[in-house]
Structure formats: C-alpha cells, structure tokens
Simulated scan of single mutants.
Amino acid sequence: MANHPPSVLDVSTEAWRLVAGIAAVLTLASLSGQVLRIVVARSEPHALIDNLNKRINSWWVIAIIVGLALLGGSGGVTLLFALASLAALREFVTTEVPARCPRALLLSACLIIVPLQYLLVWHGSYLAYTTFIPSLVFVGLPLLGQLSGNAEEFLSRTRTLRHGLLLCVFCVSHVPALLTLHVGGDPARAGWLLVFLLLIAQISDVLQYLWGKLAGQYPIAPKLSPSKTVEGTVGGIASASMLGAGLSSLTPFTTVEAALISLLITLLGFAGGLAMSAVKRRRGIKDWGKLIPGHGGVLDRLDSLILPAPVFYYVLRYGWAD
C-alpha cells in the first residue's frame, strides 16, 4: 500500500498566509453582504442580496470542510471527494425525467463502483483507477446489455448512468489522485497542487459571477446559460489566471507557467460548466439539487472541476512528477 503522510499540507509560512488570505476574503465578503442587506435591502427580503449571503455562508462551510479533509491527510481528502461523487452521481441520474436507469444498477454504482474507484485512488493504483470506470462504461455495461437479450434498450436506459460515472466519479476522482503524485521530492507539494486546482477553479466561478453582476451586458451563451456574460467570463478567467500566477510559489511552476496553467484550468472549468448547463436546460431544471444553499446541488459546485481535474492531473504526471 502507498505511504500516506498524516497531513497533505505542511504548516509553513505560505500555508498560514494562504489560510489568512482565504479567511480575510470570506470575512470581507460576509461584512459586505451584511452591509448590503442593511443599507440596500433595509433588512427586508431581497432576492439578489439574500442569495449572495447564502452563497457566502456556504463558502464558509465548504472552506472549513475542505480544510478539515486536508488535515485528515489523503484518507480525509479521498473520503470527502468520494462522498461528493456519490451525491453528484445521484443528482445527475435522478434529475432525469422520466428516470430510466434501473434502480438496482444505480444502487450497485453507489455501493460498489464509487467506493471501489476511490479505494483504488487512495491505494495509489494508477493503472487500476484510470481504467476501471472507462472499462466498465465502454465494455462492461455494453456486454451486460448483450447478455440481457435487448442491448439497445439496456444501453438506452443506462446512458445517463454511464455518463454520470464518467463525469461525476471518474473525472472528479482525479482531484484526490493528485495526492499520489510525487512532485519535486516534497511530500506536501502534491497537497498544495490540489489546493491550487481547487482555488483557481472555484475562484474563477466566483469572479465570473461577480464580474457578470458588476459589468455584464452581453450574454455569452444565451440559449445554454443566460446568466453568463462575455464581460463576466473574460473578467473572471483573467482575474483567476492572475491569481494563479501569484500563487506560483506553492507550485513547481514558474510565474508564467502558473498563469498559463491557471488559464487552462479556468477555460476548461468554463467549458465544463457550460456543458452541464446544457444538460440542465435540456432537463428543464435550474440547479442539480438544493443541498448547498445559494449554490444548488453538489454537482453545481463540481461542474467546474469535471474537465480541469483529469487534465491538470495528467499535465502534472507527465510534465512535473518525479
């Protein structure tokens, strides 16, 4: 079994600065939200301001949960994303109306396939966790369909489950898989790379939202996501990329490399979010769920990681890993 450090982050000067920076941003956001509630909304119900404050409160909870998982080491991080994948897969499959996936297969996916995928990741079995779900989706389930005697109907009924396993489980599992990489001979470096990915992907989402509210005029994809604007998208991606350049000291990247990789993460995050918005629009839903106040479901927060996570993992594995 792979050796796992008790914590994936070292308590360094950069660590405390990062924690202080995140806490300061969230504190400022909370204070700003309360000022807006009192001054603008006059303590009365206000859809936009109330939603903003819900988002901020949820970010506090998310930040604390992720922080505790990081302190718990690779086991804590793997468990957190396994639970997130379970919730996301359930949202993805059950929001299809009418629900066509056989209940027994969905239960099998949640109770067997998802835990097994994350056990393989935690164990560090690279060949196993990178081929298990793709083999199941592209070979195993089609073969089961042939054995059922009605392959076409079976594949039609399991299409959403197969897509969900690839997007919500396989792709997302590459986030904790980052902890299996050895970069620069520093055991804590992989933990900081995971933090780097999460920060850039999620902050890009937040900044796109803020830029869109402040300066957004022209919708970038009105038929798929009417709330996304050209100004919000460009402003958010550019700002997050500059932030990534500023965090280069946490990574093995130069400042220019960090900026370019951040740009790649944000562009892929935008593409992934837009693709998932298209799925939601086709199903006639606004959010994937209601678990996270102000944000929607778990998948509404993970959609910006679906494409960046595996790409970032393989860029690191073949570009910087020892």
Rank of each mutant, 00 (worst) to 15 (best):
L302V: 09
W16F: 12
E44S: 13
W192N: 10
I220G: 06
A41N: 09
Q202W: 08
V40N: 02
F138W: 15
A151R: 15
T27G: 04
L105G: 01
L106R: 01
L247E: 06
A2H: 12
F92K: 02
L141F: 15
L147F: 13
V279E: 06
A23F: 11
D300R: 10
V35R: 10
L86S: 14
P142D: 10
P102S: 05
G235H: 02
V40I: 15
V169L: 09
S85A: 13
G272F: 03
W192G: 05
L68F: 11
H182S: 15
P226F: 03
S12Q: 06
T229K: 03
L107V: 14
L52G: 09
H174I: 09
N150I: 04
C101G: 00
A258V: 12
R90W: 14
R55V: 04
T94K: 03
G232Q: 01
P102V: 01
L263G: 10
F132C: 07
S7E: 14
K280I: 12
I113N: 00
E153K: 15
S74Q: 14
S262P: 08
R55S: 00
T130Y: 01
L243D: 07
I292Q: 01
M276R: 02
V40A: 12
A221Y: 07
S30A: 12
A99Y: 00
P226M: 07
A88D: 09
L52I: 11
D10N: 11
P252R: 01
G319Q: 11
F154G: 05
F196C: 03
L263P: 01
R281M: 13
S74L: 05
D300Y: 04
L299C: 11
A128K: 08
G145M: 12
V66M: 10
G232R: 00
V206T: 14
L181V: 12
I133S: 02
D10C: 10
V195H: 00
S262F: 00
L143D: 04
Y314Q: 13
L161K: 03
A309I: 11
Y218L: 12
V93S: 04
H182G: 11
L120M: 14
Q217R: 15
L89V: 09
A177T: 08
S248G: 10
V315F: 14
T13Q: 14
S43H: 02
Q117Y: 08
P252D: 03
I112A: 10
F81V: 11
V25Y: 08
N150G: 05
V8T: 05
A190E: 09
N3P: 05
R37F: 14
L52A: 12
L83I: 14
H163F: 14
G273V: 05
T94A: 00
I306S: 08
G235W: 01
P226T: 09
L165S: 09
R42H: 12
G236C: 01
A99G: 13
R283P: 10
T251H: 03
D186E: 13
L141C: 06
A104S: 15
V169M: 08
V121H: 00
L210R: 05
G284Y: 08
L86Q: 11
P310T: 09
G76T: 04
L166M: 15
H46R: 07
S85W: 03
G244M: 05
L207M: 10
R282Y: 13
S225V: 11
L268R: 02
I292L: 09
P310Q: 09
H4M: 15
N51F: 03
L70Q: 06
I133M: 00
L83N: 02
A221F: 06
A201N: 08
G232S: 03
T254R: 07
L198I: 13
S248R: 10
L193C: 04
L136K: 04
